[in-house]
Design a protein around this nucleic acid. Structure first.
Length: 478
DNA sequence: TGAAATGTTGGGGCG
DNA sequence: ACGCCCCAACATTTC
């Protein structure tokens, strides 16, 4: 008679290349569970509204893939697991590691608790190509700069493992479920999620299709094409990666199987940035809330609810910024180039604290990820690791002209500017009366006047930046 | 994974 | 023919 073991699904909502699940399957009859942990996450790490929608759909897919035998719970994992252990005489629990600080301390505590109860707790790496504690400089301290971290630290250490097969035989415990996915109440009361989810197909199959599309259509010319939001050269894999509906190993393997080009190298280095974000979060757990460069603690940010609200709603009067913010609102996603533009605008032109932007993104993105989001916002703000210098300020007019030259992306998300001459699409405030009239635009009525003057706000930001200490005098938390 | 200001160069117009 | 100026075009520096 075989024993019953638990596989605890967390951010590994997949059957293939799932190390913990495969080991669980070898050990006995598997009780697959998912716990919506409502008790441990700090505010900044609490799952956002768009991610909840994604999660809801993903759990339903996973449940289907598991012959409707996924057991879902909500609450405190230590209580839920303790109950299950005694209810089903569990001797072993399997999971893949999570890397957010609150998860690390929770799991460490849980592991001890389970061991004390005579239960084996077995953890695996299912979501990172390199464990954060394995990549260190010669002096045994963590890297602070991406390029040496990636080139010397990662690429010169052992290569990522090949993906492992789905369990050959997966026998699932056949007992009725206590709770239904509906009981988790992940979907919002107001129905905004249905139009949003039409853009996506959550779940392992959707991830597989998305990877295939990227390999067939996106990867070739990725290096250049990824900068143009109207093209389709980005992978769109980020939400799947976040929830583990595909593993970075599967992606890495699929890409490196192909002939090596500057495109494949560049894409792999983007996976490297994801690794770097997790690495930073692991070594600097305060990354989500504290400036990495503490000299920024002195920086005087603006408190301007009107500006912040205009930014969130996509009503700044700066077309490429509004296009991005509206894409985010409608789809739970924003093209990477545009993320940098809207973030630069918030932090540098509006002088609003990066954490306001980070919080909004975290709530709205279906790919919201504490490590990536925190590291990236600090990077844009200039206080992060290997960050863009503060004085590197994007000009949203030039960025629009350069990366959306035909205005296809901008006109799609800001349709009220559809008929405006290309010459003024990214700066309608410079168009003359006649051009605006012909395009059916009344600035201040059909489309906002810019909430700040770009040149003026740029100079103001530079002036304020001068008040920060010079980099050599500043201290890094690292 | 910037942009603007400032510096340099070289061709052409012109006296 | 020559020097001078103008100003793209490009390079460098500064923020």
């Amino acid at each position: 008679m075989t024993s019953t073991v638990i596989h605890w699904f967390r951010n590994d909502l997949r059957i293939h290349d799932n190390p913990a699940l495969s080991e669980a399957a070898k050990s006995g009859t598997v009780l697959p569970i998912y716990i919506d942990d409502t008790t441990h996450a700090p505010k900044e790490a609490t799952i956002g509204a768009a991610s909840k929608v994604w999660l809801d759909h993903s759990l339903r897919k996973l449940n289907e893939d598991l012959d409707n035998k996924l057991h879902v719970f909500q609450g405190d994992p230590s209580k839920i697991l303790s109950n299950l252990v005694s209810q089903y005489s569990i001797k072993d629990i399997f999971w893949n590691r999570c890397y957010e600080p609150w998860q690390i301390s929770r799991d460490k505590h849980l592991k001890q608790l389970l061991i004390n109860q005579g239960v084996g707790a077995h953890s695996f790496n299912g979501s990172l190509l390199w464990e954060p504690w394995e990549i260190l400089k010669k002096d045994n301290t963590p890297y602070k700069v991406f390029t040496p971290y990636y080139r010397k630290g990662c690429l010169e250490s052992k290569p990522p493992r090949a993906p492992i097969q789905a369990p050959k035989t997966l026998s699932l415990l056949d007992v009725s479920q206590e709770h239904h996915i509906d009981d988790l109440h992940l979907l919002p009361a107001i129905n905004w999620h249905e139009p949003l989810i039409t853009y996506w197909e959550p779940g392992e199959l959707g991830a597989k299709k998305t990877l295939k599309r990227f390999l067939d259509e996106g990867l070739n010319d990725y290096k250049e094409g990824r900068n143009f939001p109207a093209k389709h050269h980005t992978s769109q894999l980020s939400p799947y990666l976040h929830f583990g509906e595909i593993s970075p190993h599967q992606i890495w393997h699929a890409v490196t199987m192909r002939q090596q080009t500057s495109d494949t190298d560049h894409f792999c280095s983007e996976l490297g940035w994801r690794e770097f974000s997790y690495y930073l979060l692991y070594h600097i757990p305060t990354l989500p809330t504290k400036n990495l460069n503490t000299s920024f603690d002195q920086f005087k940010w603006e408190q301007n609810a009107t500006h912040l609200d205009a930014w969130k709603k996509g009503n700044t009067g700066i077309p490429i910024v509004d296009a991005g913010m509206r894409e985010l609102w409608a789809t739970g996603y924003m093209h990477n180039r545009v993320r940098m533009i809207v973030a630069s605008f918030l932090v540098k032109n509006l002088l609003i604290h990066w954490s306001e932007g980070a919080n909004w993104f975290f709530d709205c993105l279906v790919d919201a990820d504490l490590a990536n989001n925190s590291a990236s916002w600090q990077w844009v703000a200039g206080c992060g690791a290997d960050a863009a210098p503060y004085f590197r300020i994007f000009n949203p007019v030039l960025q629009g002209q350069k990366f959306d030259p035909d205005g296809i992306y901008t006109k799609h998300w800001v349709p009220e500017l559809k008929k405006l001459d290309k010459k003024f699409l990214f700066k309608p405030w410079e168009a003359n009366e006649n051009d605006l009239l012909n395009a059916g635009i009344t600035l201040g009525t059909t489309y906002p006047m810019p909430i700040v003057d770009l040149k003026e706000s740029r100079n103001k930001a530079l002036k304020r930046y001068e008040k920060l200490k010079k980099p050599h005098q500043s201290q890094l938390l690292l």
